[in-house]
């Protein structure tokens, strides 16, 4: 072992390990919730436990994907999906916590098909939903529609909305990710990269952030060709 260690590989394998451990932990938390008396099920501390663990898990998954993106080993597996089934599954993933926090979630989606990598898009949605959980006051609205030959998946909340500098389609590239203000926007960078990986003919995917949703708060959209 005379060679210098490749630190990013070390980090990646550590992240992989942490992610798996956290996965086990989340599995236990999920089961525990079902076994606990109602007052604890809805206690804020229990919610925080699950929420924060879920957030870190989501971050780690994302970190690994970004590492693979960087190594050019992120594989895109575009398959036909029933969009409604897919979105329902994403909600199901968050259901215990949503219930625990007493939030109302609505889903608006026809029986329609879409073409995308379900794992990667699920990763984006998990992070976005986690984010919405933090900023919303009472409601989250998940929807999908077809517009200009794109499939548009949108997540809205009724919180304060995105601040001015985050709105629009122009997103920070990797170089402008700012670690000093606490918000790295790494999640947005990841979402943007994953959306772009999807293409059909000349069209490429993208993400869009605004505050024009029907609930009055933030509206995050991912557009897939």
């Amino acid at each position: 072992m005379s060679d210098k260690i490749d630190f990013s590989t070390v980090i990646a394998s550590a992240v992989h390990d942490m992610k798996n451990s956290l996965g086990m932990l989340l599995h236990s938390v999920d089961q525990l919730r079902a076994e606990l008396p109602a007052e604890i099920q809805h206690s804020q501390r229990f919610n925080t436990l699950q929420y924060e663990a879920q957030r870190v898990h989501g971050d780690l998954v994302q970190l690994l994907s970004i590492y693979r993106l960087d190594q050019n080993t992120l594989t895109l597996n575009v398959e036909e999906q029933n969009v409604r089934d897919f979105l329902e599954e994403q909600l199901a993933r968050h259901q215990p916590l949503l219930d625990g926090m007493g939030l109302t979630v609505t889903l608006e989606c026809d029986d329609q098909e879409g073409y995308f990598d379900s794992n990667l898009i699920a990763g984006i949605l998990t992070n976005t939903i986690n984010n919405a959980l933090r900023y919303t006051s009472q409601r989250i609205h998940l929807s999908a529609r077809h517009e200009e030959q794109y499939l548009v998946i949108s997540i809205q909340d009724d919180g304060q909305g995105f601040p001015e500098h985050m709105r629009g389609e122009a997103l920070p590239d990797q170089g402008t990710v700012n670690f000093s203000n606490g918000s790295t926007q790494l999640g947005l960078f990841f979402a943007d990269q994953v959306a772009r990986l999807h293409h059909q003919g000349e069209k490429r995917g993208f993400i869009r952030l605004n505050n024009t949703g029907t609930l009055g708060g933030g509206n995050f959209e991912v557009w897939l060709p």
């Binding site: 996965g23 594989t75 597996n77 199901a92």
Partner: peptide, 26 residues
Amino acid sequence: TSRDIVMSAREYRPDTYIIKPITQAV
């Protein structure tokens, strides 16, 4: 979720594969 394993699991076409952690709802 490592590439080698995901790629090889896909090749044998299970009806689906679910990534842990599995929640009851999922």
